[in-house]
Structures are given as structure tokens and as C-alpha cells.
Simulated scan of single mutants.
Amino acid sequence: MSYALITPAAEEPVTLAEAKAFLRLDGSHEDALLGDLIATARDYLEMVSGLSLVTQEWRLYRDDWPASGMVSLAHGPVQSVGTVTVYDREGAASAVPQDQARLDGRARPARFYMPGLAGRKTGLNGIEVDFTAGFGSAADVPDVAKQAILRHVAHMFSFRGVIAADQQPAGAPEGYDRLIAPLKAWRL
């Protein structure tokens, strides 16, 4: 099982103006660096939390479908499942009707139930599930996520002379894990 980002987010959850206000910066001489740091902080937060913040299109590849008919979808919250495509051993594709499919997109991880595929086996990556994930637009992203991004940008910005932008994030600010704890999926 693997995932591929099909369509990235069209915007960042934190704007350049918000980051500059948080850092109390005037002028535009650091704008390119700040843009890179915002993207890095968002990437890092999405990686450690398992979330997609702003709407994105993803594809899940599977070799088979569980006998239970239920699969977990990472990168939640999942807004919708687009198409499910199954490839036979010769490579011919067929779309699977979703008339009995059910999605619990807010669960962590999201759950997608499709009894019509239960126990089905194909070749390597023979099942593709296209889905839309994220909270919506930047305005829909939880404030705690925006605060985490802003604090992480400030942390990376303060070390900009020591650690190159392409080597960030070299670390997270003090208290970052406690700040993002509500965003993370915890497993027992």
C-alpha cells in the first residue's frame, strides 16, 4: 500500500502577510525565504500529524482489498472518494461502482468501506482509490495548526544563518509537540 499526491494544495494555510506580521517584519527582502519556510513548516506538520490541511487530491495504491471490505485512508480528513479503479492481471482497468460504499472521513485514520471488493486480489498496485482530503480552504484550517506553522516558521527563521533553507526543518520550537498534540492521531 502506498500513496501519491495527485494535486497539491492550491494555497498555504498561512499567508506570507500573516507570517510577516507574526515575525514583525517589514519590507519584502525576506519574502522568498518566508514562502519556503511556510511550505516546509506545513509539510512537516502534515507529516507528523498525518493530516492534509488544505484540500488536496491523493491516490491510494493497494495490491488487494481486505476481506472486511474496510480500508484506512491516511492524509485525512477525507472529504470524498472519487474513483476506485481495479486493474486485472493483464493491466486492463475497470472502474468499480460505489453504490454500497461508505466513507467515515472524519475518523483518524479515515475509513472507507466497499464490500464489493472484499477479498479481491490483483497484481502489484492493482487497486487505485482516488480521494480528496483536507479541511477545505486555508480559512477552514484549525487555528492550532496555523499557530504551529507560524511558530515553526519563526523558529526556522531565527536559525536562517546557521541552517540553509533547503536543510530545514532542522528542529521544531520548544513546546511544538504539545501544541500539535490535538492534531495527531494517537494509537494505543
Rank of each mutant, 00 (worst) to 15 (best):
D63M: 05
A101S: 15
M47G: 10
W65G: 00
L103H: 05
M70Q: 15
L33F: 11
M47K: 14
L103R: 04
V129N: 07
G134I: 00
S72R: 14
G105D: 08
G50V: 04
R111A: 13
V141H: 01
A118P: 10
K146E: 02
L34C: 02
A138I: 01
G126P: 02
A32Q: 13
P115M: 11
A101D: 12
A95T: 15
Q100H: 13
Q147R: 12
V86F: 01
V96T: 12
T83I: 11
R108C: 10
G76C: 09
A139C: 06
D104H: 13
A145T: 00
P77R: 05
A118Y: 09
Y44G: 02
A118K: 12
A118S: 15
R106G: 14
R62P: 00
H75F: 11
V84D: 00
V141E: 00
P77I: 03
Q56D: 06
R120N: 04
E46G: 09
G76K: 03
T132E: 11
S52D: 02
D99V: 14
A93V: 05
G35R: 09
P66T: 09
V78Y: 03
G105H: 09
A118R: 13
L103P: 04
L37T: 02
A110W: 06
F112R: 10
G69R: 04
Y44S: 10
